[in-house]
Nucleic acid binder design. Structure first.
Lengths: 245, 245
DNA sequence: CCTCTCGATGAATCCATCT
DNA sequence: AAGATGGATTCATCGAGAG
């Protein structure tokens, strides 16, 4: 019901059974940041996404060095495999920053999904920007596997969320998403549905799926994060089983 | 200082002097709505965008029947002419709905602007959507004419806004934007700067520019809306000149 | 003047039916 | 067979008007 498979998404996804998932929740490496090859390749993900003065010692993550054409080609394949593993009527939710919205939309549709909308995630704490507008939001692109099954899930969901990034002891990954945000997004899957997460990272989506009563299958490339994800999933289960006082 | 020129943007823009504007604020017809040609083209903008049982008799607007390729080609030309009329370091702000973000980004960059960001506008009033996420936001794409001039305008602006659509007596156009939102956006232009608005509509951007102490040049195709825009601009000036009590 | 209720409505989307 | 037409749906928000 709650598993994290260690391996590359493009290798693991083809081993999954057709039509078994109700929601694909993907938080891929954005491959963004910087318009030039130098910007993309010269620094580690750590230098790229973390303020210079933030000393948290989190590990780098892989797969963040594609140009935009490569990103579209790669993500299209991932999402096409996800479509195959998804039930008709299922949803896909793919995270993106502002710069990659067009590329992510292309990849979503190239993968066979019907593009349904954009959901901004507002981050209350963000870096100010002199001379213009701050990048205060990231985005979730929503797609569906053909017509939406309103019978299975008739929920009316908000089109916008505000949530703070995890900090301090709860922070396990450089680009970790808030569990509250993921819980809200997961409600687009029917109750008891199955969630597929091809880029599990530190497993926040699994914790969220567990809290919302959905099953979870995560895929994570690095041993380091796969272990963190499994530990967090185990703990979230245990916490749930503790008696109320 | 506050003028509304009646005519087609593609005809009027070439008559403007090079390098005179500090901000291009464009709210083009989105040419969006629906997956099919029918959804996009067959109905009037009133049928397309206004609630079935709404009673207001606001006039239709023109130029909302292009397919996506046509939209990109057309908007690119508009924005290229705007770039010529803009000062180096100037900003462009272009409204879009979620579906046209990729096309609008293409047109902005094809017109020679440097894409700088996406600013969501959250609408507290929006239609719910069964089986998924509501379309609760529209978007403003931000571009610049080369490097940003931080000396002329060092402001740090929010990257996200929430504002209700005008209702009742204040409503003049089907797709009218809130003056408060436009005032906030206009602050990206330096104090006393010149704002160019190639799709003036009912002139809300002019009212906002006046309130923020920027000059305004609007272009509007239809006589109907050009007259409304001029009247609203005159009234906003008069209101400002009334003595305080 | 404040509080409350009531009713209108939204840059939508879907689907059955007709041309 | 593809395109056009028309009607039904949805609820948080906000203005108007009453108390």
């Amino acid at each position: 019901m709650y598993e994290v498979i260690e391996g590359d998404a493009l290798t693991v996804l083809p081993t999954l059974t057709d039509g078994t998932f109700d929601l694909v929740l993907a938080d891929p490496p954005y491959n963004s940041g910087g318009r030039t090859t130098t910007d993309r390749t010269s620094t580690s993900t750590h230098d790229k996404y973390v303020s210079h003065d933030a000393r948290h010692g989190l590990a780098d993550f892989a797969g963040d060095n594609r140009d935009q054409r490569g990103y579209i080609a790669w993500l299209s394949q991932i999402l096409a495999e996800c479509l195959r593993a998804a039930r008709p009527g299922a949803s896909a939710l793919v995270f993106s920053d502002w710069r990659q919205i067009p590329a992510t939309s292309d990849a979503l549709q190239a993968g066979g999904w019907l593009w349904r909308g954009v959901i901004p995630w507002h981050k209350p704490i963000h870096r100010p920007r002199r001379g213009g507008f701050a990048a205060a939001c990231e985005y979730v692109l929503w797609g569906s596997h053909g017509p939406i099954d309103i019978i299975r899930n008739p929920a009316c969901l908000p089109g916008w969320y505000s949530a703070s990034q995890p900090r301090g002891r709860d922070r396990h990954h450089i680009t970790q998403k808030p569990v509250d945000l993921l819980r809200a997004l997961i409600r687009v899957a029917p109750a008891g549905g199955a969630v597929l997460d091809p880029f599990a990272g530190s497993g926040s989506a699994g914790v969220a799926a567990r809290a919302e009563g959905r099953t979870y299958t995560g895929i994570e490339l690095t041993t380091h994060y796969a272990e963190i994800a499994r530990r967090r999933l185990d703990q979230s289960v245990r916490e749930d089983h503790q008696p109320c006082e």
